[in-house]
Design a protein around this nucleic acid. Structure first.
Lengths: 359, 359
DNA sequence: GGGAATCCTGAAAGTTCTTGCCAACCGGCG
DNA sequence: CGCCGGTTGGCAAGAACTTTCAGGATTCCC
């Protein structure tokens, strides 16, 4: 049996009339009385009308694919604090293997009446996915913003790091160190950022490495994201004689370093590795990872600003904001052909400060 | 003016009686008619009662303090997938500096009618916080489970890693390597896990190190969580001649290693460092970090199982489930007095497999 | 200290919603 | 064709909720 007004009135020691006033958010009730009624409401498990729920507006969904790659917690953290500064309450939704899918999360967020949704590396980055889901959201209308990925025909702001440029800069860095056989390790081909990195790598290799185009195909390994994928792919590429590797994520780069070590090779003396993301802790790895930094904070601020503008009715430009990656030179890249242990006696001494080379 | 039953009946082209039947979820209404009424409800913006909202049940809040320390994403990921397997939809809430507080998140979760809440390292671990908030939740009643922290007088299941044991094992490991002046670096004193680590460290030091009790006080540094806190504290302890350090988190351990390097010391030759958590990527750090592993998966499963039991009305024991930490020996600890570069020529070769020493 | 204005509250009157009953309608089936 | 089960509308009684109105408390001003 559901609680009735009379029950609540009894619990709060007021009259039914007062309870009714509180429930309908009408004036003429003292704040303490109002609070007492609300408390009684909760005690008896009475369902509050929506208007009494604080900030039911101001909720923003944040959908990220996973938390294992530290770049995603990093994005989540920055976006959340930026949203909070704008007065919105973030609701973080992360997919898990065999768990809740992006669509299910979106449905839940719609039920919860969110004001907008930020997608980080979601299905919008997957060319094999149907993007009608996003058009449906925009049509409701519900403001959405996409980070790292692009799909044509979706009238929403896109915020991306320039993957193509990142791959080109990584290749250029390795070429400048004397490398020529430079492999690429990244994720499955259906993802937009992967395609862009492949394009950038291929363009830079064609321009700078002097390798014949036919040979390039054998130096690109598209594998699973994560340490293990990088490890497996690096193993295959090392057999093809690469001395430099451009990786699509820092985790893949760590996997590649592990693969090299397992073959008795030293990084960076025998193999130079460039990561991608500059996710947290990469300065503490062995060796400290040279990587392409995504400007996470700037991207988060841009995404939140665009979303807030849309929420407030000021349509943001529905184009792609492209952010420049920075090359962060640490210890995983070195001049090609340097011998292990010669002038690099391990990294026992204080690590040299990272050199940041803006694009 | 709010929509009335008669308006909805008109919109759906049915009678008021039918609308009333649908609203109260009573039998005797054809599925198509029911759907038509629900549609009319949404068209007119009538607020549906909770029971008609899709999957409003099955939502579980997951409150974590931050995402910067990788142990928290790790917990979140495992708990989320465990919850998903039990048919619950996790809602992850992370606090951010200057952003949403734990209480605000809890209030939002209550509004969203969650079935339960999991707190990871929340205010329940803070002895300076008022724990009435948790008693109020339990009184609603709402099932809650706490991870890593304990507060007496809260009738909820607690799931913790045995901090005291972890600190003792870490000290024992360092003592076995010949260290005697072993410092402790951990967070502010008001947190339960900190107090327990201090107690464990003190007990083990008294038993094993031979140092006078009076001297111990100067070897414990309570500082801020995070890399910078560890760095600062390690600097102070190095001046007091420690050769081994037990740290309250992996991030602090990384900070401690950085502090040692900045003073020209080598880890582990001049200073051995033990972390805590075995958060992801710690096998890739320089040097690979010796650390006390929290059994994250086991703890998550236990916490979720307890919560699901409570949600289903089978009260779980309201005591503390204490999980044993494991010592994971990697490269940041070595025999005391070993000279830099002598028998440890850097870690250029494949890292030896980590040795896991269960408690 | 008194009086008036204001705010808050409860009783009662008024409105909306729920429920039970029954008849009407519809389609399937013997 | 007529029976039958399921569905729906009409109606009315009554329950639940809202609003009105007047009384009581508080405060402020003189």
């Amino acid at each position: 049996m559901r609680a009735r007004l009379s029950d609540i009135a009894q619990q709060a020691e007021v009259s039914e009339a007062t309870v009714s006033r509180v429930l309908n958010d009408r004036p003429g009730v003292a704040p303490e009385t109002r609070q007492a009624v609300l408390t009684a409401l909760d005690v008896l498990g009475y369902e509050r009308p929506a208007r009494l729920r604080k900030r039911s507006a101001g909720l923003v969904g944040l959908v990220v694919p996973e938390l294992e790659n530290p770049i995603f917690p990093a994005f989540a953290q920055v976006i959340e604090s930026t949203l909070a500064q704008s007065g919105f309450t973030p609701v973080l939704c992360t997919q898990t293997a065999g768990g809740v899918t992006e669509d299910e999360y979106v449905e839940m967020l719609l039920d919860r009446q969110v004001s907008g949704i930020v997608f980080v590396s979601g299905l919008h980055a997957d060319t094999a996915a149907n993007h009608d889901r996003y058009r449906a959201l925009i049509g409701r209308p519900l403001p959405i913003v996409m980070i790292n990925g692009y799909a044509p025909g979706i009238a929403a702001p896109f915020v991306s790091c320039d993957d193509r440029e990142a791959a080109e800069l990584a290749v250029a860095h390795l070429v400048a160190l004397g490398h020529r056989r430079i492999g690429l390790i990244t994720g499955p081909d259906r993802f937009v950022p992967v395609q862009r990195k492949v394009a950038g790598w291929r363009a830079a290799m064609t321009r700078l490495s002097g390798l014949p185009a036919a040979e390039l195909d054998s130096l690109a390994e598209l594998t699973l994201f994560g340490v293990e994928g990088g490890e497996a792919a690096a193993g295959r590429l090392l057999e093809r004689g690469v001395t430099g590797l451009v990786c699509g994520s820092d985790l893949m780069a760590l996997g590649a370093i592990r693969a090299a070590r397992q073959r008795g090779l030293s990084v960076p003396a025998d193999l130079s590795v460039v990561g991608y993301d500059d996710s947290p802790l990469m300065a503490f790895t062995e060796p400290p990872l040279t990587t392409m930094r995504q400007p996470v904070a700037a991207m988060a601020v841009a995404a939140v600003r665009a979303l807030v503008d849309e929420i407030n009715g000021h349509a943001a430009p529905h184009s792609e904001y492209s952010f420049r990656p920075e090359l962060v030179v640490r210890g995983s890249t070195a001049v090609a052909g340097a011998t292990a242990g010669a002038d690099r006696p391990g990294r026992q001494q204080p690590a040299p400060p990272a050199v940041v080379v803006p694009a």
